[in-house]
Nucleic acid binder design. Structure first.
Lengths: 378, 378
DNA sequence: CGCTTCATCTTCGATTTCGAAGGAAGTGGA
DNA sequence: TCCACTTCCTTCGAAATCGAAGATGAAGCG
């Protein structure tokens, strides 16, 4: 397991610009890095002779000579990333541009505790590495998403629900025992947001909603993940307007989660005599035009939208991307839109786009890759 | 009216670090700028011979030789800043460190329209400059706060209430006709937030509440003012939970502003047979223990606090600073605290401070200075 | 009081970066 | 087809930056 990239200062900047896809040619690099074109040429030459960068054909002309396209060499390294769920882990390997080499899903009971879960993860990484990556290509970073809050200062899990044994566990340290590499530990919705952000070029302020069993949310401010003190992005325990009163697992009445989460919808459906195994199954019911399901989903969207009105006025994002297993239900996003556009300030909704997430189910893994790159090429 | 500072690249960075008070010595500069100590010495020498920087005694030792303290030369320049209110304008001159040279308040009816108001402002600036600034000290920037939304892209006022004739008026352009200088046009609550941020060292994420006739809010994310698309920070038109239903001026029912703004409190007091001229007078009533006033202020605080719970969970700030003319009423902030601490996630309130604003009544002017510095020394 | 230690600041040769000039490769119009 | 023009990239001397070594001044300590 190799350690640091043999790059210094300017080289790292250039490498990162190529890795993140922002630059494809020496001219791009000069524009984006602020360095002189001549300096860029020098550094790029060095990176090529180090085997980290390669030239690959030429790009499209912008009216003059065609640029010589630069790409990260496949042998520059790989990243190992995972996204832990309650019963499954999605995990895979990415190249240093964040492109997946292999991604798979394994059963993994998070309730078995941190040590067992993380060791299972590490074993899976080692397997994948052995099978899919030549021995001379180094691992450059390891990252994982956690379905609970992560303190950015200590990188420990803090007060998670549904994760027995994980409270205050030093996840990054534990992984660090096995990998002497940059290690990323981050909340799963935050990772999803980081991955989603790459799919909205030109949009610097995003809210990414994860509507699944729970309701998660990641925030991108100015192109960067906003963590606050570790809890930023939570919207699930906001009080909603309601006639009745429902007690949430957190102890407070009328949390959004108690009304609009996949879990809440499932239990409401059960009350109507319709049982489903997973939140994703609700989408099927909606597509089959089961009135109870459609009505419930629409109500959930309205409630989520009402909470979002506050946040849209306050944060004024460019985009609200809606992902998660429930997001495929058309009425959800429609109801969210209706609530937000009806109630928010015109100035705040003028250029606001509320749309389905674009990054797909591997959003969190891609986000982990994006964040790891920053650390690995620092 | 002089134009650009004769500084290039690295010099500007160093000058800015001194101006913002982040650095006081060559060693500080070396640490903060990332430049080598030797390069810093060279550049500082140049800045001193340009008359922009001066040495002034020595600082306190940190265990070794005492640093030679650097200060911006008073002749380096001044900034002209203003904060427009409905009936008054506060305006003044600052040196390039943001320290006030002179600040005064003049009557100024914003309803007379943009051209008349801005020309009155410019005339006032010219007067102050003639009286308080030697002729050889150049003006380096002009900035003003506006009691309405400002589009950061066009720097025009957009859909302001209570500002007839201002909609879509190109404020920056108009001022640019008279001053060929960096020009800042910004919402007043945003300026206040920028000023307040300087008083909370180590805190990168702030919400600054302005509780006066209306309810304004400025947001600092990662040490920088968050503008969004121009409307960011609005919390006054959020729907609050309520038994009755009150129509707000914006056309929606039950906006926070209709319940908790100074204007709303004044009209509620009038219903109790108590008439006051300005929101600030309510503070006096509270201090005199008039029960109606205290009860109203406490209710306003509770409502504001309930809105803040959503934002605290979402944004997870380090500090909520409460300013504005109503903020001197103790029950307001107490009620806000109670609502936030009761309902928010423990993780979000763990290190959260809810406190009175520290920057005083000139916060907006100081904020304008801070933002102008970035532009003037770029 | 002298000694050590520390942080600050400067000197100076080595290294890096810059920028102007020019070559290379392509587009588009006469 | 020729020619002007654009963009991309490299060459090379000038300028800026770095970093190691040393000088400076001050605090801490026996």
């Amino acid at each position: 397991m190799d350690q640091r990239l043999p790059v210094s200062g300017a080289q790292g900047d250039l490498l990162r610009l190529v890795a993140t896809g922002k630059a494809e040619s020496r001219a791009d690099l000069a524009r984006l890095s602020g360095l002189a074109a001549s300096s860029v040429s020098l550094r790029v030459e060095e990176l090529i002779s180090l085997g980290l960068l390669g030239e690959e054909g030429s790009g499209t002309s912008r009216g003059g000579r065609r640029p010589r396209r630069l790409r990260l060499s496949p042998s520059a390294g790989v990243l190992a990333v995972a996204d832990l769920g309650a019963h499954h882990a999605r995990l895979g390997l990415l190249d240093l541009s964040g492109v997946p080499l292999v991604i798979e899903e394994r059963p993994c009971e998070i309730a078995r505790g941190p040590a067992a879960t993380l060791d299972l993860l590490s074993d899976a990484f080692d397997e994948l590495l052995a099978v899919h990556v030549p021995g001379d290509v180094p691992l450059r970073g390891v990252g994982t998403g956690i379905p609970g809050p992560v303190d950015p200062a200590t990188r420990r899990v803090v007060t998670p629900s549904r994760m027995p044994g994980w409270n205050n566990f030093p996840v990054a340290e534990h992984l660090g025992l096995r990998y002497d590499l940059p290690i990323l530990v981050e909340n799963d919705a935050n990772l999803m947001a980081a991955g989603e952000a790459k799919h909205w070029p030109g949009c610097d302020n995003l809210m990414v909603l994860k509507a699944g069993t729970g309701i998660g949310c990641g925030v991108i401010v100015n192109g960067h993940l906003h963590r606050g003190r570790g809890a930023a992005g939570d919207i699930s325990h906001v009080r909603v307007r309601s006639d009745s009163s429902v007690l949430c697992a957190c102890g407070h009445p009328d949390c959004l989660e108690a009304y609009a989460s996949g879990a809440a919808l499932m239990s409401a459906l059960a009350d109507s005599g319709i049982t489903v195994a997973r939140p994703a199954d609700i989408v099927g019911l909606v597509n089959d035009a089961i009135p109870e399901a459609t009505s419930l989903v629409r109500g959930a969207g309205r409630r989520i939208g009402e909470v979002l009105t506050v946040l849209v006025n306050f944060f004024n994002p460019d985009v609200i991307a809606v992902g998660g297993s429930l997001s495929a239900a058309e009425p959800l996003i429609t109801a969210i839109r209706a609530a937000v556009y009806e109630r928010c300030l015109p100035l705040a909704t003028r250029d606001l786009e509320i749309a389905p997430a674009r990054a797909g189910r591997d959003a969190a893994l891609l986000g982990a890759g994006a964040l790891l790159l920053e650390a690995a090429l620092a």
